[in-house]
Simulated assay, not measured.
Amino acid sequence: MIKVVCLTGTTILFFQENAGNIAHRLEFIATMMRYLQCNVFMLSYRGYGDSEGYPSQHGLIKDAQAALDHLLQRTDIETTKVVVFGRSLGGAVATALVKNNPGKVAALILENTFTSILDMAGVMFPLLKWFIGGHGSNGLGIMNFLVRSPWNTLNIIGNVSAPVLFLSGSQDEMIPPAHMKRLYDAASLNTRTLFIEFADGMHMDTWLRGGERYWHSIRLFLEQHVGSSSD
């Protein structure tokens, strides 16, 4: 067993994947709190769970901003130690939020995140790659205007100044692991980045298959960039 280190005052703002709702992440969050001894804040995007409204890129970015603003106004946490963590779609939300709030977030963690919805269209529907595409597409992208929420994370990751940890499941069956590599490469100007692969990790279970190495990697990254004290 690894020794659990108390990350004094660390609060993780977690953004979930596209599928399901925050109730489906409770086992993951409980494990995170046990290993990292941190606070965790989650929100249900508009149109998810019991939240009203309809999800869109603009709307989800507003939801994320409201969550961060709420945390930064609290007096019961250390607001200089807020870490944003996003998985899959949540990674796109998290990147946009951190990019829009320079200096307000201590670190960013991305897990199994896509480069853009435009690139994912060609993955999910191969014939579309000739008509819709972003970076790395062999197509012309002549129908890109049809995609209302493009989530071009690859375009903005290079503008994130906070430290970034990339957690990639090499067996991701939904988002090609190459997307995470491309995001990492695009963030190369930021010298405080770290890329870690988990050989057996799939899209939703990288944290389970990664086991203690998964949590140990996050813990060491946060110790370096956020600070810690022995429990």
Results as ranks from 00 to 15, higher is better:
Leu146Glu: 04
Gln73Lys: 14
Asn100His: 09
Gly158Val: 04
Gly91Ile: 08
Ala94Asn: 11
Ser170Leu: 14
Thr191Ser: 14
Ala94Met: 10
Thr79Trp: 09
Thr95Ala: 13
Phe125Trp: 05
Leu72Trp: 05
Val83Lys: 08
Asp172Lys: 00
Trp130His: 12
Thr113Cys: 11
Ala96Trp: 09
Gly133Glu: 07
Val147His: 05
Arg87Asn: 07
Gln65Thr: 15
Phe166Ala: 06
Leu89Cys: 02
Leu194Trp: 13
Trp130Ala: 11
Ile175Pro: 02
Lys181His: 13
Thr115Phe: 04
Gln65Lys: 15
Lys181Val: 08
Ile61Ala: 12
Val82Gly: 07
Ala67Tyr: 11
Glu111Arg: 05
Leu189Asn: 14
Val83Leu: 03
Gln57Cys: 06
Val83Gln: 09
Ala64Leu: 05
Ser56Arg: 04
Lys181Gln: 13
Pro126Ile: 08
Ser168Trp: 01
Ser88Asn: 10
Asp119His: 12
His70Cys: 11
Phe145Arg: 08
Phe114Arg: 01
Ala67Gln: 11
Asn138Gln: 10
Val160Cys: 08
Gln57Asp: 03
Gly122Thr: 10
Phe114Met: 15
Thr193His: 04
Tyr184Ala: 00
Gln171Leu: 15
Ile156Arg: 03
Phe125Thr: 11
Arg74Trp: 13
Phe131Ser: 12
Leu146Tyr: 02
Lys81Thr: 08
Asp63Tyr: 07
Val84Asp: 10
Arg192Ser: 14
Asp172Val: 06
Met174Cys: 00
Val105Ala: 02
Ala66Tyr: 09
Val105His: 05
Leu154Ala: 07
Val82Arg: 03
Gly90Glu: 06
Thr193Lys: 14
Ser168Asp: 06
Asp63Ile: 04
Leu154Phe: 12
Arg74Cys: 10
Phe125Asp: 00
Pro163Glu: 05
Lys99Ala: 14
Asp172Ile: 06
Glu52Ile: 07
Arg74Val: 05
Leu167Ala: 01
Pro177Phe: 12
Ile109Cys: 08
Gly169Cys: 09
Met124Cys: 01
Thr75His: 14
Gln73Asp: 14
Thr191Gln: 13
Thr75Asn: 13
Pro126Arg: 00
Gly86Glu: 00
Pro55His: 00
Met180Cys: 00
Val98Phe: 10
Leu128Asn: 06
Lys62Val: 09
Ala64His: 04
Gly169Asp: 11
Thr79Gly: 07
Leu140His: 06
Asn144Leu: 10
Leu165Cys: 06
Arg74Phe: 12
Val105Tyr: 06
Ile117Trp: 01
Ser168Glu: 06
Glu173Thr: 01
Ala64Val: 05
Leu110Phe: 07
Val84Pro: 13
Leu68Lys: 14
His135Ser: 08
Ile132Lys: 02
Gly53Leu: 04
Tyr54Cys: 04
Pro163Asp: 05
Thr193Ile: 15
Thr191Pro: 04
Leu189Tyr: 03
Arg192Glu: 14
His179Leu: 00
Gly86Tyr: 01
Gln73Ser: 15
Arg182Ile: 14
Phe145Thr: 03
Gly86Lys: 02
Ser188Glu: 12
Phe125His: 11
Asn144Thr: 08
Pro177Trp: 11
Arg148Ile: 01
Asp185Lys: 14
Thr79Met: 05
Ile109Met: 15
Trp151Lys: 00
Met120Tyr: 02
Ser170Tyr: 03
Thr80Cys: 10
Leu165Pro: 02
Ile142Met: 10
Ser116Asn: 05
Val123Ser: 08
Asn190Pro: 09
Gly103Leu: 06
Asp63Phe: 01
Lys62Trp: 00
Gln57Glu: 15
Glu78Gln: 14
Pro176Met: 02
Asn159Trp: 02
Thr191Asn: 12
Gly90Gln: 07
